[in-house]
Design a protein around this nucleic acid. Structure first.
Lengths: 187, 187
DNA sequence: GTCTATAAGGGGATAGAC
DNA sequence: GTCTATCCCCTTATAGAC
């Protein structure tokens, strides 16, 4: 709120929190650990994020913003062909698996750690999954196939598989082909 | 060791621990909680399982035994056709999604909670994934297709997707079809 | 002797106060 | 930033009940 000085502080805290939460898990990383790695005082962090849940929520929100931008970019570059747009969504995720810091989907991971919770972080995660699934459904619908929801289910299974895969290179290599085949078969 | 009486105790503890670990997560469930729900004393539990890691390991081991038996049964009933055997592996997993208590793969879930660990539980989980992937590779190899490993990658992506899916009914409905199509396309 | 109940150790968690 | 409060974690030890 009344924070005028040190404009980069919030981002720096979020950077550290993101790296730790994403690579080690939310439950595994304590606030003290984050404070230590940021090198700031406790006050500063709790002034920016009153509770751990707030920090986790901010972590997910930022992840989501970046992901949404990457997705929009991929869709923009895919052009107007609905099939290519659907493939682009899968390809964008597959491309992410190849980054060395990839460690699965932060939203799915969070729900594995907090399966029953209904706090803002869990809500964010479920929201993300629901909306992304809807996007796939919409794109499939634009194709004009006989069973758009069946196609969307297949694409979604591929996406789920990509995020869950422990064999990233191999998964990334086949996912796009499988998506194309599913689209071709639906026609 | 010198435990002769109360033969059902160990199983009862394991039953409670399994239900809690699987549905709520290993990190989320404390030993005190398990002791409370079993209704036994602390000593008894620690006599059977000297540490939480031992209990978690036993939980995974028992899960694995049952899963292996189910898999063997599915393979037995599938007969000798390699394609049907491969489909049977996918179908067996898809069938599991339909159970109300399904909450994903306990091994994958554990690795999400403990991504970097190298203790017995994490070893069990990685071992299971490696061996199951090898089984899929073997079954694909028996098909005599030109690219058995590529086919195995596809089947494995479907399996990963099944376990990760938040839309279980829909995933289960399309997974077997996708597996059949992948096999047909590989020929 | 087997089990329960309880207390306590040592650590780390979140969070608040100064 | 340091210091404290409160809580829960895993684990061990002690004491009592059947």
């Amino acid at each position: 709120m009344a924070r005028t000085a040190a404009p980069g502080t919030r981002e720096r805290i979020l950077d550290v929190a993101t790296a730790l939460f994403y690579t080690e898990g939310v439950r595994a990383v304590g606030m003290s650990r984050i404070i230590g790695e940021v090198g700031c005082g406790k006050n500063l962090l709790y002034a920016q994020f009153p509770s751990k849940a707030d920090l986790v929520t901010a972590y997910l929100d930022r992840f989501r913003e970046r992901r949404d931008r990457a997705e929009e970019k991929a869709l923009r570059e895919a052009g107007d062909d609905p099939a290519e747009r659907l493939v682009a969504v899968v390809a964008e995720i597959a491309g992410r698996l190849r980054r060395p810091d990839f460690r699965g989907c932060p939203f799915r991971n969070l729900l594995t750690e907090f399966p029953d919770g209904d706090e803002p972080p869990e809500r964010r995660a479920r929201e993300y999954l629901r909306e992304t699934r809807e996007l796939v459904g919409c794109l499939a619908g634009e194709l004009g196939v006989t069973d758009p929801e069946g196609l969307a289910d297949r694409i979604w299974l591929i996406i789920d598989g990509l995020y869950a895969s422990g064999f990233r290179e191999r998964a990334a290599a086949v996912a796009v082909d499988m998506a194309r085949e599913a689209i071709a078969a639906a026609r």
